[in-house]
């Protein structure tokens, strides 16, 4: 199990970044690097601050809810090698990285849609490597997944989409289901009466994402997983969806794992960021640690935004 320095951070984050920098040991004679770091901090100042607020609220709980232990996976070529990751209850962990580095694969491993070749995947205290297909279906009910393209069932109305997991897994009456669907649609800022009878094809990209989130959270899962929640959206909608994910974390205390290459929104919502590169996790820690990191690749990744 890998514990990262960020785990010791129970105390509120330092109010100014200057203090933290003074504490951090720095190699002599690299003014160029230091300049770059300052630039990065300035650039992400707003996002970092917003992130801090969220962190404080969830700092209380520390129990691990999703763990990857030395996970390796290969298909035709190796996808992940010796990847370890701990997500604690109430945290929002963003898995970032370039395209094709196995980010979405990580989500599929957590959902047990894929099995690791070696290593263990633990969800809510249960090792899910070797569970049967039927057991996996039950474990997945603890998790709500939001797909990149929303993956709404296009033969069903918005109402039926959100009601689907409720009909499958709960004994709720029709009235209770309708109340729950309305509640979830309102939570994602959609007007239930306007959208409920529409088909997914009639919705815009941002609305589809929101219905996808509403469907994912319908059975009140403890864990929400997001696959590129903001990709393909305009900057304004990206902001809306990011705020929505933060609202979910804040008000419902759900644990979130977000796969994203959108580093800007990652900084806003993440408790921790895991950076995947070349099949490995090259960085895992808080957004502050990330901007402070001297690692060349981390710097390049942030600089490339």
């Amino acid at each position: 199990m890998t514990d990262t320095p960020a785990d010791d951070k129970g105390a509120p984050a330092p109010s100014t970044y200057g203090e933290e920098r003074r504490r951090a040991p720095e190699p002599e004679g690299e003014p160029r690097l230091r300049r770059a770091e300052d630039e990065l901090r300035a650039r992400f100042a707003e996002e970092l601050q917003e992130g801090e607020e969220t962190q404080d609220r969830v700092a209380a709980s520390r129990e691990a809810i999703v763990e990857l232990e030395h996970v390796s996976l290969a298909f035709d070529r190796p996808i992940l090698e010796d990847v370890s990751l701990v997500v604690r209850r109430g945290e929002t962990v963003v898995i970032a990285g370039e395209s094709g580095t196995g980010k979405s694969t990580t989500l599929k491993l957590i959902l047990r849609l894929l099995r690791p070749d070696t290593g263990r995947v633990i969800v809510d205290g249960e090792v899910i490597n070797d569970v049967t297909y039927e057991e996996a279906l039950i474990i997945r009910q603890k998790m709500g997944m939001v797909f990149q393209g929303a993956a709404l069932f296009d033969s069903m109305s918005v109402f039926e989409n959100v009601a689907f997991p409720l009909r499958e897994h709960t004994e709720l009456t029709d009235d209770e289901i309708e109340a729950r669907v309305r509640e979830k649609l309102e939570f994602v800022d959609l007007e239930p009466d306007r959208v409920m009878d529409q088909l997914p094809a009639e919705l815009s990209g941002g609305m589809k994402k929101r219905v996808g989130i509403a469907r994912g959270m319908a059975v009140n899962p403890a864990i929400m997983l997001y696959d590129e929640p903001t990709s393909g959206l305009d900057p304004l909608t990206t902001g809306t969806i990011t705020r929505l994910i933060m609202k979910l974390q804040r008000e419902l205390k759900v644990t979130s794992v977000v796969v994203s290459h959108d580093i800007r929104s990652a900084f806003r919502m993440a408790t921790k960021i895991a950076l995947l590169a070349d099949r490995h996790i090259v960085f895992f820690g808080s957004p502050e640690d990330m901007t402070a990191s001297q690692d060349r690749y981390v710097q390049d990744f942030l600089g490339g935004v």
């Binding site: 959902l111 297909y133 039927e134 279906l137 009910q141 998790m143 393209g149 993956a151």
Partner: peptide, 21 residues
């Protein structure tokens, strides 16, 4: 065609993740 498009738009995965075979 119908099930194939459901596959490529991740709707089959969605069924799986919603705990339905």
């Amino acid at each position: 065609a119908q099930i194939g498009s459901m596959r490529v738009t991740e709707q089959i995965d969605a069924l799986n993740t919603l705990g339905v075979d």
